[in-house]
């Protein structure tokens, strides 16, 4: 909630000037974009709401995209072995391909996808933080 700040301090009554207390820091704090955006987030104004929806959508899209990678990369294997038995019977270094893929290669693959997710999700959050903390919008 932005507190309206009157830029022109009311002129004091004539005569001996009364001391007016001007707290610049407070005015500055209420006025910056970052503070206003934070307030919009916590008080769920339409702007804040749209920002959060954007973040949730970005994170969900990222998670779904990477699960699609795993869904095709790993989840497609049983189907592939079933409809193309020659792939299942193929050998690499004297070991049948399915044993190498499932017993060995699957684990580094999963870790790589997980690493990519952590990296990209943190970038999404950084983007969100940047938008919120940008002084002017």
């Amino acid at each position: 909630m932005a507190i309206p700040v009157d830029p022109q301090p009311k002129p004091g009554p004539p005569g001996p000037a009364r001391r007016t207390r001007v707290v610049l820091a407070e005015v500055a704090r209420v006025g910056t974009g970052a503070e206003r955006t934070r307030a919009e987030l916590t008080e769920q104004t339409q702007v804040g709401e749209a920002l959060v929806r954007g973040l949730v959508r970005a994170q969900l899209a990222l998670a779904l995209r990477l699960s699609l990678v795993v869904g095709i990369g790993l989840g497609g294997l049983p189907l592939l072995f079933a409809i193309a038995p020659e792939v299942g019977a193929a050998k690499l270094f004297g070991v049948n391909l399915p044993w190498l893929l499932l017993g060995l290669a699957a684990f580094p693959f999963l870790v790589a996808v997980g690493w990519a997710y952590v990296h990209l999700a943190e970038r999404n959050e950084q983007d969100f933080t940047d938008v919120v903390q940008r002084p002017e919008r």
Binding site: V52, V56, Q59, Q126
Partner: peptide, 9 residues
């Protein structure tokens, strides 16, 4: 907001 906003904010 609580579930998804990074704590750094």
């Amino acid at each position: 907001l609580r579930l998804h906003a990074p704590e750094t904010l």
